[in-house]
């Protein structure tokens, strides 16, 4: 079980989480607004993000027209 102590950051994160649970109403409202915004960003930003990472890492980098058109690229 010794190796569990390597995951101290995880335990700290849980501790912080438990502290946040006992938070004020204002903080709660702000947090839920942040989560809502994050959700919208994730919904519309995830696909562009994956496409960008893939484009950046592939060699040769395909051009945008090739990348997005469904037609076979010659």
């Amino acid at each position: 079980m010794l190796h569990l102590w390597h995951q101290m950051p995880l335990l700290c994160a849980v501790k912080i989480l438990l502290l946040i649970i006992k938070m004020t109403d204002e903080l709660k409202e702000r947090l839920s607004r942040v989560i809502d915004t994050g959700r919208v960003v994730l919904q519309y930003g995830w696909i562009p993000f994956v496409v960008y990472v893939g484009w950046k890492q592939s060699t040769p980098r395909p051009n945008l027209l090739k990348l997005l058109s469904p037609l076979p690229s010659a």
Binding site: Q43, Y44, W46, I47, V50, V53, G54
Partner: peptide, 24 residues
């Protein structure tokens, strides 16, 4: 529309439908 990226230890994949709902 879907896109997928994977290297040795990271995999990311997403699918967005015509009504703009996302599965990732």
């Amino acid at each position: 529309f879907g896109s997928a990226y994977a290297n040795e230890n990271t995999m990311m994949q997403g699918n967005i439908e015509s009504d703009l709902s996302l599965t990732g």
